[in-house]
Design a protein around this nucleic acid. Sequence first.
DNA 1: GCCAACGTTGGC
DNA 2: GCCAACGTTGGC
Length: 148
Amino acid sequence: MKTEPQTFSIDDLKKSKNSISSWDGVRNYQARNFMKDQMKEGDLVLIYHSSCKEIGIAGLAEVVKEAYPDHTSQDKKSDYFDPKSTKERPIWYMVDVKWLKTYNNILTLNSIKEVKEMSESPITKKGNRLSIVPLTEKQFKSLQKLLK
DNA sequence: GCCAACGTTGGC
DNA sequence: GCCAACGTTGGC
């Protein structure tokens, strides 16, 4: 899962109550579908920092609550408000994640690009804008070897 | 700050 | 349903 650390970093997640936070503000259908269809309780999640000084994987988290309606889409005052999303028919969803680990070093995008298992992943492709990308077991394991 | 990539919108 | 225009993302 991707996040801009200026907005919400792995440290912010850690500092949240019980180190748990809802992952709101996803406003992309593909990413939403990954959340709804694929993210199950107990799944491990790598947290990726984007649009910042040190781009790459910063930490590890766990899904503690599966997809449920993102109420910020119905909050007029929220930056994430979407008039098309209603209580009866919510369009947007969020999950809750729990902080597990902050890695000693960011695993930089450059290093990720050198992992051959990642060559097919959207993460290493130019123009990637997906904020949620599923990883295969193989991809996850090869990344984990590089994470401390 | 630039620019490529790509999602979304809206006119037809 | 097509596609041009536009907006946003994100790496550099």
